[in-house]
Structures are given as C-alpha cells and as structure tokens.
Design a protein around this nucleic acid. Structure first.
Lengths: 211, 211
DNA sequence: TGGCGTATGTGATAATTTGCACAAGAAAAT
DNA sequence: ATTTTCTTGTGCAAATTATCACATACGCCA
C-alpha cells in the first residue's frame, strides 16, 4: 500500500483531542492576567502529566523556552493555528426542537469562533418561524444552502431515529464534520468526522464507580 | 470455568467508557425489533472492531453464546447491572441561566433513568422562581438538600469562573460525580469523578482535519 | 449422528500511548 | 564568570490498549 504519501499527518488523534483542552486552559490563564506558564502548571491545572503536555506540543514545534516555559499568548496563537480555529467557522444546525433551540441559543459557540449560519427542520409548522435569530428553513433547501455557503460543519439535534438520514443528507451536501447531539452512533465515510454529545453516556460512565 | 472478574479496579476506565455506547446501540436494536446480535454487527454499527467488543464484554463475564451471538435483552440487562443504571439516580443541577434551563428541560435524562431532583442558583432574582418543574433554590441550601436526599451526582451549568467554587461546595456536600458543562477543567479529589460537556472542544478537534 | 457454518472468549502479539530521566538552554543571582 | 535554579524537548522504557487467530461451542439440517 504505497499511499502513505497522502498521509502527512502521523499525529495521533488522541493528541489532537487534547489540544482544545490546552487551549481552554491557556485562555483561562491569560484572562486571569498570566503571561507565562509551564508544562508543570498546565499539568497541575488539567490533571495531566507535564511530560505528556510537552510531548504533545512538541509534535508541532518548539513553542516553549527552556528555563522559562511558554509565553501564553504565543502558545495560544500557535494552537489556534494548528487547530485552524484562528478564523470563523460557519455551522449548519439541523433540528429546531427543544434541543435544537437550546443549541441555537448557546452563547459558547459564537464566543469561540463558531457561527451558526442557518437552521433546518423537517416540521412544516416550524418552517419560516424564528428560532432565536434564525429563520427555520425546510430540509429541501439543505443541500443548496450548504453548497452556496460552502459550509463544512454541521450539528445534528434531531430525534435519534432521524439522525442517520439527516447525516446522509449532510454528507451528500459536502459536510465533513458532524457534531451529533442525538444519542445514537451514525455511520459516515472515512473522510467525514463525527463527534458525539451524549450527557447521559457520561453520567452512565460515572455511575459505574459510585457505591 | 470462565474467568470472571469481580474486582472493578482492574477494569480499564476506557472500557467502562465504551459500555454506555454499547448500551445505546443495544437499545436501538431492540427498539427496531431485533432480538439477537453479534459482536460483528455491533462493531459495524459502532465503527469498532468486533474483537474489542468481545474483549470488553468478557471483562464482566460471558454474556454471549457461541454460534449465535448475544441475546439483546439479556446483554442490555447485564450492562445496566454493570453500570448500575438499572435503577433511578437523582441529580442536583447548579446553574439556572440559559444553559442550566436547557439542561433542566432536556428530556433525555429522565428517559434514561436520571432524575433532576433540585436546581440551585446564586442569583437572588432567580431564587423561588420556577425553572420548568423546579423551584430554584439558593446556594445556601445546597449542602443540606444534598445530604438530606443522599444525592451523589451533580451537573454544573454555571459560568466558567464559578465552576471550581461550585464544585468545591458540591464535593463538600458529598457529591461523588460531576458532569461539568462549564468550559473549564476543575480539580477534584481522587474519589470524585468528573466528566465534561464542551461542544466547542469537539468542534475544535474536528476543524484540525478540515481542509 | 455427523458435518457445516457461525460466533464467542481468550491467550498471544502488535500497536499505541504514557512516563521517565536527563542533556542542554535560559535567566537570575552572586 | 560562575553557579544555581528552572524548564524544555526527547530518546528510551514501561504501561496500556487494540488486534489477531484459533480452540471451542452452539444450532441447524440432512
């Protein structure tokens, strides 16, 4: 299989998954007035070993200085570059039920560079109505809108039984990243990324350890 | 004689983390009318290797039958036992802002055995008002209420800057599991479990791979 | 009954991930 | 200038996690 030339990234996904956590901590530190930090301090804050933080960061270059540590604003900037979050991303939201409305109204997205560009629902009674700042559009307009706006990211907040079909439509429209709020696993081609938000799964993971 | 581990301590947490995913898939299958499944079918649905599923399950005993696979209702029941979700759990919710209200109104908790028992907020203007079915209580009543009801699980939906202090109060009241919706890492003693809900972190993890 | 197709559970092995420990660089103090 | 004190980045080893491969068991059917 000589196709490894198209895979320049040998950086483990588990490392990528920690970068947003590091970024979150750095934002907090700079907000609190810190200008410099160290792998030890970050590790203490995050409950991660300092060696792991250093090794993770070293995948992308030497961002720190021996003896002093990391300049927070610089490291923040570098991590944003790596994660490609030093820009705004437009997102399409599918589902305008209770959950979809809550997602649409969540402040945290805009605050961190993710802009909900449009909202879709299949319920004819909802179409045309406003959900927060958005006019809810019918599913028939999904593909054209996504293509016209060049959107690559979607959030799915529909009942579990519709999630796969919605995902199929999104993928057909060219979406490459899906954040799925429906409590169900979905199947996607290997070039499409999926992440799940399932609070109950997290709770169930913790009840295992309770007495 | 099948080796059957009864010591929870030697089962990797990463295995525990997959059990709710398995349970979710099993619920879906039984809802669709299936009565039997196999590690291969589950693996196909979940995008996980069949060997991993078999090995994960084997930590808790032999739940399947050679030649046939797993009886879904039986395996579901066993997983619920392992995760201790074959009962109702009461949860305390702290934070009655936009996010907290959305969490309080989310149907998915009750549907899967998690019952929000009470809601707290520090804002005097909110106290006494109703959030959905709940009367919002002041933080001064937090510890007594938790102790009186014997609650072990909390959800935190307050601004990031208050999350650590709220967690401290929860831990002081005896809470052993925290689901943190605030986009910040919190420090807890080793006998307290924390899980995070941060949709933006998930999005950032995916933008790395976008062109 | 015996043969066939299928699927589990599990030792052995491979791959991945984490942690250790230290050389080397940087700043500050003397 | 030298010493001291930090802290990074990184080979290497350890630990953890995932996969392989197969003996074993079950059900079905002729």
């Amino acid at each position: 299989m000589p196709s490894h030339s198209t895979n320049p990234d040998d950086i483990p996904d588990i490392v990528i998954g920690r970068l947003p956590i590091y970024l979150r901590a750095l934002m907090r530190l700079s907000q609190e007035g810190h200008e410099v930090t160290s792998s030890h301090e970050l590790g203490r804050i995050l409950g991660i070993s300092s060696a792991q933080i250093r090794k993770d960061l070293s995948h992308f270059g030497g961002f720190g200085k021996q003896g002093t540590g990391y300049q927070i604003s610089y490291l923040e900037d570098k991590l944003r570059q790596v994660l490609q979050v030093n820009r705004e991303w437009e997102i399409v939201l599918v589902g305008a039920g209770d959950l979809g409305q809550a997602v649409a109204n969540y402040r945290g997205f805009a605050d961190r560079g993710f802009h909900i560009a449009c909202v879709f629902d299949s319920n004819p009674q909802k179409i045309g109505k406003k959900s927060g700042n958005f006019v809810i559009q019918p599913m028939s307009e999904l593909k054209d809108t996504i293509l016209a706006k060049g959107i690559q990211i979607a959030m799915v907040a529909v009942p579990a039984e519709y999630a796969q079909e919605v995902a199929n439509q999104l993928i057909d429209a060219g979406v490459k990243a899906i954040l799925n709020y429906a409590p169900i696993s979905i199947n996607v081609p290997s070039d499409v990324h999926v992440q799940y938000i399932d609070p109950v799964a997290h709770l169930q993971r913790m009840t295992y350890y309770l007495k």
